[in-house]
């Protein structure tokens, strides 16, 4: 790989990570406001879908590992767990991404929803597995899940479009990068 290609790839990774950071801050502010209603939005699917579907293998792994560790650092989840789950989900998506893209016009949106569901279920089982049916925890978790998926349904298309537009404005070729992988 030539130097200019490497720089372009690095630029893509930086753009995706900065976008994730801003989106994470936005979700945090939303959650800060929603605490009065005891509702939490959990949107990791937002961060996995874009790199998994649009970047090459190594940049996508790098993006998802860094995002996972950033999330692990700020939550009581044991260090490395989110990064590990993100990697598994990403690798599964990566295996089938050409099939998914052929058959579905809204592939980004669908993948974001599915990955969010998988990670939400994982965290719920990890933290509340034993207590899920105690003292209203199930209802709270279910409502959090419904609100999270609904919020993701609204935010994800806008978020993906913003990243794509930013990449286009900066004159980087996302799709050339993707095709070069094949």
């Amino acid at each position: 790989m030539t130097n200019s290609k490497q720089i372009a790839l690095l630029g893509l990774i930086v753009i995706v990570l900065i976008s994730h950071g801003i989106a994470n801050l936005f979700v945090m502010e939303l959650n800060n406001s929603l605490t009065t209603l005891s509702i939490t939005l959990f949107l990791p699917g937002l961060f996995i879908a874009f790199p998994s579907l649009n970047l090459q293998l190594y940049p996508a792994i790098l993006c998802n590992t860094i995002t996972g560790i950033l999330i692990d650092a700020t939550t009581p989840i044991p260090m490395g767990t989110s990064a590990f789950v993100f990697l598994i989900v990403q690798l599964v998506v990566f295996q089938f991404r050409s099939v998914i893209k052929k058959n579905n016009l809204y592939h980004g949106w669908v993948i974001a929803q599915i990955t969010n569901f998988v990670i939400f279920s994982f965290v719920t089982l990890y933290f509340n597995g034993k207590y899920l049916f105690e003292d209203g925890i199930f209802i709270r978790t279910l409502l959090d899940f419904i609100f999270s998926q609904s919020a993701l349904a609204i935010i994800a298309p806008v978020y993906f479009t913003i990243i794509k537009k930013t990449i286009a404005v900066l004159r980087m070729d996302l799709y050339a990068n993707e095709l070069s992988h094949k």
């Binding site: 800060n32 605490t35 939490t40 939550t75 009581p76 933290f127 509340n128 959090d144």
Partner: peptide
Amino acid sequence: CKRDLTSWWQE
């Protein structure tokens, strides 16, 4: 500066 009041953890 940050409120994490989820169904999994409360910090």
